[in-house]
Design a protein around this nucleic acid. Structure first.
Length: 483
DNA sequence: CTAGGGTTAG
């Protein structure tokens, strides 16, 4: 079993599924039409029975905000304009109207804006409820202001609110995201002791995720097994979290066992259950199992791969030099309406580069820009690496291309990483462009980066053959930067 | 009638 035969099997699964895909699109378009038609008809059923006492502008506002809280606003200015209108409306909208607006802001990841609007409401003494506080506390945690989140908890107490499992779970996650696992644990155990918190599945999932991310996989699994015995049973998220962690620690067999366990227990896997397993099976060249897993996912479970899943496959093909298969995956993606993003294209570019097809890689680079996908530093690292390696193998004019490409990148406002510098410096060294290399070493050190192991050993290797003052000075500079 | 968990890929 090889990656090629996996590819042909994958293709056949996906082709067979295409009929299903088109019917799915049909029902989607019917849904859209349905929505527009309905929009112009009075919708008595969509208005709660008790709303006869709610002023009419509030009902309109509510309908509008329900939709925005699900999708977010198109832009921030719209959200702020609505907030201003709400402040001017008399009588004032209810707390849950403001909560809906905040929910929309959270969807847009505008956490700091949400916090400042919450402050604005507080200073105007507008009534809020515990949900408003919970949203604000969550937004503080997301913008790394756990300290302020705690001060909000205090003011909630002062105003007579009783924090609930939402509040505490959010604060535990806040601690964990700040890498304060000791504080999180203390907070958690104290709340349990004081009988302030009755953890639910989300609390447990939050703790399990924190344990996994801090390398305490064994403890995470202990909690997971504890949940199985308790009334608070693991759900899909719990399984996904543990499976992902096991995959990342190379414990793929344990991860596969858990995945079959969840199926036996009737807990439905989703695309995120499969993706980490697919990735690690690719990495370990376990193609037979990969093929079976893909078959189970697509055929038996009727779960479609998404952009991330496809990108994992493109990357696997790129790393095994299977350019044609990588291209095939892109084609399937387009057919299925799962469009490649910048990461997918970076992987495809890697495939071109590994085959030495630099011209095609450059064509892809320009196409990406045309499609409105902005190349990232990683895109440039891949291209520069390709150009430098090719230059080292045969033609040094590729290194000149790499150097001018490096300049273009900076002009476009992308800030090179340590890796970027090391790639281009190695390219210069290979091609005996010692002066260029020296300039770049100084620039790299000025930016606070240092030579990596590859650059240092290459430099030492050259120094054994060539005694050049520029090279010696560069070597010194590299050694100093490493300290 | 709104709030907390898992974003996995280069």
């Amino acid at each position: 079993m090889t990656l090629i035969s996996v590819s042909s099997r994958l293709l056949s699964f996906l082709r067979r599924r295409r009929i299903g895909t088109s019917s799915c699109f049909q029902s989607l378009s019917i849904g859209v039409v349905h929505f527009h038609v309905n929009d112009n008809i009075a919708k008595p059923n969509s208005i709660p029975h008790s709303t006869h006492s709610i002023p009419s502008p509030h009902i309109k506002l509510q309908q509008y905000l329900v939709q925005k809280s699900k999708s977010g606003f198109d832009n921030l200015d719209d959200a702020l304009a609505v907030f201003d209108k709400m402040l001017k409306l008399r009588p004032l909208p209810y707390d849950f109207h403001f909560n809906q607006l905040f929910t929309a802001l959270v969807k847009m990841k505008q956490y700091q804006v949400a916090v400042s609007l919450f402050q604005e409401m507080s200073s105007r003494k507008i009534d809020v409820d515990i949900i408003t506080f919970n949203i604000a506390i969550n937004c503080c945690c997301h913008s790394n202001r756990v300290d302020y989140a705690f001060s909000l908890l205090l003011s909630a107490f002062k105003r007579g609110f009783v924090p609930d499992v939402f509040t505490y779970t959010t604060l535990i996650r806040g601690h964990l995201s700040q890498h304060k696992s000791a504080e999180a644990r203390l907070f958690f155990t104290n709340l349990i002791k004081l009988n302030e918190l009755q953890p639910d599945v989300v609390t447990d999932n939050t703790v399990i995720n924190g344990l996994c991310k801090t390398g305490h996989t064994q403890m995470a699994i202990w909690l997971f097994r504890f949940m199985e015995k308790s009334d608070c049973k693991p759900n899909t998220v719990t399984y996904n979290t543990v499976i992902d962690s096991l995959c990342q620690h190379g414990l793929v067999d344990d991860a596969l066992i858990l995945q079959s366990e969840m199926m036996e227990k009737g807990i439905l896997p989703n695309v995120w259950t499969y993706s980490p397993l697919i990735q690690v099976l690719c990495k370990l060249n376990r193609w037979e199992e990969l093929s079976l897993l893909l078959q189970q996912m697509i055929e038996d479970m009727n779960i479609s791969p998404n952009v991330h899943t496809f990108t994992i496959l493109v990357d696997a093909y790129a790393k095994s030099g299977k350019l044609d298969d990588a291209k095939q995956i892109i084609k399937i993606m387009n057919e299925r309406g799962e469009y490649p993003n910048i990461v997918t294209y970076n992987s495809l570019m890697q495939a071109y580069c590994s085959q030495g097809q630099m011209d095609e890689a450059m064509v892809l680079y320009r196409n990406m820009e045309c499609e409105g996908l902005s190349p990232t530093v990683v895109t440039h690292n891949i291209l520069l690496h390709g150009l430098c390696q090719l230059g080292g193998l045969c033609k040094s004019n590729y290194v000149d291309k790499a150097l001018s490409f490096f300049q273009t990148m900076e002009c476009n406002g992308l800030i090179p990483e340590s890796k970027t510098y090391n790639i281009i410096i190695c390219g210069c060294l290979w091609n005996k462009k010692y002066n260029e290399a020296s300039k770049l070493v100084h620039k790299m050190v000025d930016c606070g980066f240092s030579a990596d192991a590859i650059t240092t050993s290459l430099l030492q290797q050259i120094l054994t053959k060539v005694q050049d003052p520029t090279l010696l000075a560069m070597h010194q500079k590299c050694l100093q930067s490493g300290v």
